[in-house]
Design a protein around this nucleic acid. Structure first.
Length: 605
DNA sequence: CTAGGGTTAG
C-alpha cells in the first residue's frame, strides 16, 4: 500500500486510501507505515498541513514516524510559528508520550531541535537537545546550524568545538554550520582550522562546503585566500560558487576583479541570476564604477533577470554616491514596485554627502510618511542642517527624535586575540584591561597629532564644544579594539577588527595613521565591507573628493573619484589636503542596523 | 528499509 502512495496525484486519491485504512481498522494500528506516508503526503505534496494535523489528532497512539511527518510538515510550512502554536494545543495531550518517545529517538529529537531552531526559539531547541538521550551527528548539526542561522554564531562555534570533544566526527553539514558562524564572527583562525579538517576528511568534494569556505575567507578579510580555494576546487563550481566569489571581490572593493570573474562566468556558460547582478552592482558601488554599474543594471533584462528592489537600491546608491541625486530620485519614482524604506534612506545618505538640503527634506518627508523611526534617518537630516550651521533646524529634528523616542543602536567591535574573542562597545570600560587600553589611546592620540591629524567632528549633531566631540569620537569601539591588540601583541601580524555598524570617517582616518605609525596592517570589517590599511595606505583603491562647479554658489557639489595606488589623502578644491578624514564611503544604511552617522553622533539626548 | 542536519543577497 505504501509503495503505491507516490503514484497518488490528488488529495482525493489519498483520502480514499485513508478511508480504506479506517474501514479495515489499520488506521489505529500502533505502527502503520501507510498512515505515516499518508501524513507525509498531506504535508509535503498536497500542501494541506491543517488536514494532516487534523488526521494526526485522530490517531490514538501516534508512532515516531507519524510525529516525524507532522513535525517536518510544520518546519516546511510558510508560517511555522503559527502552525506550531496551533499545534501545541493538541500536543499537550500527547506530551508524556512524546517525552518518553523522543528522548530515546535521535531522529524525532533532532527534528524537534530543528523545528524549535527554525521558529527562532533557540532556548527550547537547546533544551530539547540537552534532554535527548541518544544523539548522533545530525542532532549536533541541527543545533549548530540553528545557532549559526539564528545570529548566535558564538554559541554555534562553542557547540562545534564540543562536538569534537564528545567524539563526534564533523561531516559536511557540521562544517557548513561552523563556517557560517566563523564568517559572521570574522573568526579567521577558527575558520582556517575547519578548512584544515575539511581537507583532511576530503569534505571538499562537496560544492556547498567549498562555497562556505570561500565565503568564510572573504568575510574574514582574505579575498586572496578565498580566491585560492575558488581556483583549486576539485568539484564542479555552482552558480553559488561564482556569486560568492564575485561578492567577495565586491566586499573588498575590487570591482575590476569582480567584473573579470563575471566575464569568466559567461565563458564557463553559467547563467547569472539575480544574486549575480546584485553582487556585481555592489562591486561597482564599492569601486566607484558608476557607468559600468549603470550599464550592467540596464543589461539585466537582456540576461533574463528582472531587477528586484535590491537592484534598484544598489543603483540608487551608485547614482547617489556619484552625486547624481536627481537621477537617483527619478529611478525611485519610476520603479515598477513600491519603493521601500531602505531606498529612501540610501538617497538621504547621498543628500548628506552632497549637502543637498532641499532633497534631504523631501526624502525625510517620505521617510516620515512611511513611518520610519530609525535613528539614522533623523541624524542624517540633522547632519545636513548642521553642515549649514542651521542650528534651529537641528534642534527641531532633535526634538522630533525625543518625541518619537528614537533609540540609537549601540555600536560594538570585536577582535580575536590568542583564540579569544574580545568585544568592545562605544566608551566601554568593562574589559579587564580597560585602563591600559585608554592609556594606549591617549598615546595614539598624542602620536597621530604629530602627523597633522585633526579630529573630524563636523558630523557631530550638536552645537557642543569641540573637546567634547573629540572625546566622543575617541571612544568608538573600533578604536578600543585596535588599542587593545596593540597592547596585547607586539608581533607584526595583521589586526582584524569586526564592527556591527559602518566605520565612521574619523575612525577611518585614525586607523589609517595607526597603521602607518605602528607598522601594522589593520583590516576593519564593518557592516557592509572591508577596509584594509597597510602602512597608512588603503588598498586597492582610494577615493578622492573632488569639488565640482555648481550653479548655486551656496551649494557645494562634490564628486567621488577613484584613484588607484596613490598615497592616501584627499583632494579638496583641486589641492591635496592631508589628512582630512573625509569618509570615502557614505553608504547608508543597512537592513537592520543604522550606519556611519548614528555611530559618530553620540550624546543624542 | 525509509526518516533528521545544508552555501551566496541593497
Amino acid at each position: 500500500m505504501a509503495s503505491l502512495l507516490p503514484k497518488y496525484t490528488s488529495l482525493s486519491h489519498a483520502k480514499q486510501l485513508q478511508a480504506h485504512l479506517i474501514t479495515t481498522g489499520q488506521f489505529q494500528f500502533r505502527i502503520c507505515p501507510s498512515r505515516s506516508k499518508l501524513l507525509e503526503l498531506y504535508t509535503l505534496s498536497f500542501d494541506s498541513l491543517s488536514f494532516a494535523i487534523h488526521t494526526f489528532c485522530q490517531i490514538l497512539t501516534p508512532s515516531t514516524n507519524d510525529w516525524n511527518a507532522i513535525l517536518r510538515g510544520l518546519i516546511g510550512s510558510p508560517a511555522p510559528t503559527d502552525a506550531f502554536l496551533c499545534f501545541s494545543e493538541s500536543i499537550q495531550l500527547h506530551s508524556h508520550i512524546v517525552r518518553k518517545g523522543f528522548l530515546a529517538d535521535a531522529l524525532l529529537g533532532t527534528t524537534l531541535v530543528d523545528l524549535y531552531a527554525k521558529v527562532g526559539d533557540l532556548d527550547s531547541a537547546e533544551r530539547v537537545f540537552d534532554e535527548m538521550v541518544k544523539r548522533d551527528i545530525a542532532s549536533w548539526n541541527a543545533l549548530i546550524s540553528g545557532f549559526a542561522q539564528g545570529s548566535k554564531p558564538t554559541e554555534a562555534l562553542a557547540l562545534f568545538k564540543r562536538t569534537e570533544i564528545m567524539g563526534f566526527k564533523p561531516n559536511e553539514i557540521t562544517v557548513l554550520g561552523a563556517l557560517s558562524a566563523c564568517s559572521q564572527l570574522g573568526a579567521f583562525k577558527e575558520g582556517e582550522k575547519i578548512h584544515a579538517h575539511i581537507r583532511e576528511e576530503r569534505l571538499d568534494m562537496n560544492v556547498q562546503v567549498c562555497n562556505a569556505v570561500i565565503d568564510t575567507y572573504a568575510k574574514c578579510g582574505f579575498a586572496d585566500k578565498a580566491y585560492l580555494v575558488f581556483e583549486s576546487m576539485s568539484c564542479k563550481k555552482s552558480l553559488v560558487t561564482w556569486n560568492t566569489m564575485i561578492m567577495a571581490f565586491a566586499m573588498h572593493g575590487d570591482g575590476c576583479k569582480a567584473l573579470e570573474l563575471f566575464e569568466q562566468m559567461g565563458q564557463a556558460e553559467v547563467d547569472p541570476d539575480a544574486v549575480s547582478f546584485l553582487a556585481l552592482l555592489c562591486a561597482c558601488n564599492h569601486a566607484g564604477l558608476v557607468e559600468e554599474g549603470y550599464r550592467l543594471f540596464n543589461s539585466m533584462e537582456k540576461s533574463g533577470v528582472t531587477p528586484n528592489v535590491k537592484h534598484y537600491g544598489s543603483v540608487v546608491d551608485l547614482l547617489g554616491r556619484a552625486g547624481r541625486l536627481q537621477e537617483a530620485y527619478d529611478v525611485i519614482n519610476s520603479m515598477p514596485m513600491v519603493p521601500d524604506l531602505v531606498l529612501w534612506q540610501t538617497l538621504l545618505g547621498a543628500c548628506r554627502t552632497y549637502a543637498n538640503v532641499e532633497m534631504a527634506e523631501l526624502v525625510s518627508q517620505k521617510l516620515v510618511e512611511m513611518g520610519s523611526n530609525s535613528d539614522g534617518d533623523f541624524v542624517l537630516l540633522s547632519n545636513v542642517y548642521a553642515a549649514q550651521k542651521r542650528w534651529a533646524d537641528v534642534g527641531r529634528v532633535r526634538n522630533a527624535m525625543k518625541i518619537r523616542d528614537v533609540k540609537k543602536v549601540p555600536g560594538f567591535s570585536y577582535v580575536e586575540e590568542k583564540g579569544v574573542i574580545h568585544k568592545f562597545c562605544n566608551g566601554d570600560k568593562s574589559h579587564e584591561s580597560w585602563r591600559e587600553i585608554y592609556a594606549k589611546l591617549d598615546e595614539i592620540r598624542f602620536r597621530i597629532k604629530e602627523y597633522g591629524y585633526l579630529a573630524e567632528t563636523s558630523f557631530v549633531l550638536h552645537d557642543i564644544g569641540e573637546e567634547e566631540k573629540e572625546n566622543a569620537l575617541y571612544h568608538h569601539s573600533e578604536k578600543l579594539a585596535v588599542a587593545f591588540v596593540l597592547i596585547s601583541s607586539s608581533t607584526g601580524t595583521p589586526i582584524h577588527v569586526i564592527k556591527n555598524l559602518r566605520i565612521c570617517g574619523d575612525c577611518h582616518a585614525m586607523i589609517k595613521l595607526i597603521s602607518k605609525i605602528y607598522g601594522r596592517e589593520i583590516i576593519v570589517r564593518d557592516r557592509l565591507r572591508f577596509h584594509r590599511f597597510k602602512q597608512g595606505y588603503r588598498s586597492p583603491e582610494i577615493f578622492f573628493l573632488i569639488k565640482e562647479k555648481s550653479a548655486d554658489p551656496f551649494v557645494e557639489s562634490f564628486r567621488w573619484k577613484p584613484q588607484k595606488n596613490v598615497a592616501n589623502g584627499y583632494f579638496f578644491n583641486g589641492q591635496a589636503v592631508n589628512p582630512i578624514p573625509v569618509p570615502f564611503e557614505i553608504r547608508y544604511p543597512d537592513k537592520q542596523l543604522p550606519a556611519l552617522l548614528s555611530d559618530t553622533n553620540l550624546n543624542i539626548i
